[in-house]
Nucleic acid binder design. Structure first.
Lengths: 342, 342
DNA sequence: GTGCAATGTGGAACCGTTTCCCTATGTCAT
DNA sequence: ATGACATAGGGAAACGGTTCCACATTGCAC
């Protein structure tokens, strides 16, 4: 494998000059630069990033911690991040970690804290204070996209507002018997995404002077997946007596599961049951699902841009350092919701 | 940041001994080893992988090239690979690359060929000879999981056999008017996954003395996704006249799309239309889809084990160097298929 | 007692870059 | 003429590990 010394010799310059010529830093005569570049190309020289990292301390690599890759939202975010990172010349090291615990501690202590990454992005993860601290103590930026992150910059939609938007859509249609399929799991904590969506729902109901309706008190916890929504909806809709006329599902995948359950139970949609979700899932249009769209791919790109700023990769002339504007959402009405039956 | 020299000084030994004590290579008195480890722990020493890579030439990192992360199969594989790699102490660098082209060339030349990864895994990618050569020339293992890879070790199910299995299931049920929703895209080449499934179908039909049935010659190309299957199925089932009684879909997601299309067209399932897919998708059970299961998560783990062998990480005592046994598949019959209507 | 292998440790070279510091030249304002 | 400054390039010292080689000690077979 040719090293920079070989290039230098071939071009008749010193290693120092060769390095400057190839990296574009410092003064090099245009003529010399061309000679060096030609030499490098001729012998197929490829710089060793390890050697460079060793001295510069920067790796051109960011670590992404994500609990799932196979849920639509997370997959989209990941794709968005990957693309943006790649075009910024960065590599992406993936850590697929679900629950906090010894496994995650190991990753933070032995992988992320090592000098392999310049920054950490946590997607939909509820970070502990210790985790944030492990990274920041190493003077590395850490950015959360969704989830929670005590003491770290965070990018997210306004989950509470999104839930209210969905709920108020149902209220405007005249529904009074509305249930919520809430996200279960570690994220059941109040400040988590699932918790915020739940409180948005409850607030809007409260403001309308209504209580959640249906079996199990009108709020049933569902794993944030299609089968999770299916199971929860079966439970919610099981008793024909006090059946709600509308459901606000914590995610589109949960909503799809609920639609499937309604179909199985022979409940006509949307005439007997309206359903609204959150996400803007790829399949929402095909299944006619009314939803509060968010744009995970774009969120990934925005998050990367923010990290690049934190890394000083872009001149942040005048860009507000602390931009806490929530990410974009939009209600899209389709055929899964209609006026309340009378 | 403490370096190994600091540890050595604190433990009263040389850098050489400290290195040996921490890595476990070479002779170190048990007593000394403990002293060094205690010193390292005390000052929170973390070894720099870059420095180590520089001299050893190994990075403990493998690159994974994958065209999608948001299709079920690929997401599962990725999760399986990630888990296995992590527990082998390796990092995973993700390259989400769809079509061959300049973008992919750039990644192979400027990222993968660089010394950042010890090996490359290509999942469901049709690699060019040049791409394989770029990696192998650097004396790095490259392993394909699915897709095609001229001159590289490859792990895959027997796609042709899986397609035959699905088709023969329909034939045994007495269907004679059978159509195929074939995978479209770059993978339409004969040796690709989609191509192999198509020929498996055609062979079985041929062996039964039947021709594909339905609109558009009984074989319609579909993008390998739910909306893709939906669109293709609408086209296939559009003309009530020569409608097939059964469909073999190239993947479960395509099958789901077809089911949705049938529903939209008011075609009763399975009485008027049977559908079988390939994959063993997470949702198959819920939707009652008959399918030829494969096990992508496990495939990922197997692929990692293979790569570890190629990297000499495990003693491959007696293990067959060239194991070309296809990966496991299994037909699972559910409610989406039934006897042909008469 | 000698020879040899196994064990234990340190010094120093090395991996492949970047960057600091120093020197040299040309240009331009004073 | 004299600085000041921008441009250009070289030598050498990092960066933080691993490993080669040399040397010392010990145990054991002969």
């Amino acid at each position: 494998m040719p090293a920079i010394g070989d290039v230098a010799r071939l071009a008749g310059v010193s290693k120092a000059t060769a390095s400057r010529a190839l990296s574009g830093r410092g003064y090099v005569a245009e003529d010399t630069r061309r000679r060096v570049q030609a030499a490098a190309a001729r012998i197929g020289y490829i710089a060793s990033p390890d050697a460079a990292s060793l001295v510069t301390g920067r790796t051109k690599n960011v670590g992404v911690v994500i609990p799932f890759v196979n849920r639509w939202f997370f997959g989209e975010v990941l794709e968005g991040i990957e693309r943006a990172l790649l075009s910024a010349g960065y590599d992406l090291t993936l850590y697929n970690l679900a629950q906090a615990g010894p496994e995650r501690d190991r990753v933070f202590d032995f992988f992320l804290a090592r000098k392999r990454v310049d920054a950490v992005m946590a997607v939909g993860v509820d970070l502990t204070e210790r985790e944030v601290e492990v990274i920041t103590r190493r003077a590395k930026p850490i950015l959360a996209l969704g989830g929670t992150a005590p003491g770290a910059p965070r990018l997210a939609i306004d989950d509470r507002a999104a839930a209210s938007l969905a709920t108020e859509h149902l209220l405007k249609l005249g529904h009074t018997r509305i249930a919520h399929l809430a996200g279960a799991g570690s994220g059941a904590a109040a400040r988590s995404v699932q918790g915020l969506r739940r409180s948005g729902f409850l607030e809007s109901m409260d403001a309308a002077g209504l209580a959640p309706a249906g079996n199990s008190g009108g709020v049933v916890e569902a794993e944030m997946s299609l089968p999770g929504g299916y199971a929860a909806a079966l439970q919610l809709l099981g008793h024909p007596g006090d059946r709600p006329t509308a459901i606000f599902a914590a995610s589109d995948e949960v909503a799809f599961g609920a639609m499937r359950a309604a179909e199985r139970l022979g409940i006509a949609m949307p005439s007997q049951l309206s359903i609204v979700g959150i996400d803007g899932h790829e399949y929402a249009e095909l299944f006619g699902l009314t939803t509060v769209e968010q744009y995970p791919g774009e969120q990934g790109r925005i998050a990367v841009a923010r990290v690049m700023r934190l890394l000083g990769e872009v001149s942040d002339d005048g860009a507000p350092e602390h931009d806490d504007t929530p990410l974009k959402t939009r209600l899209v009405v389709r055929s899964s919701t209609t006026s309340a039956p009378r």
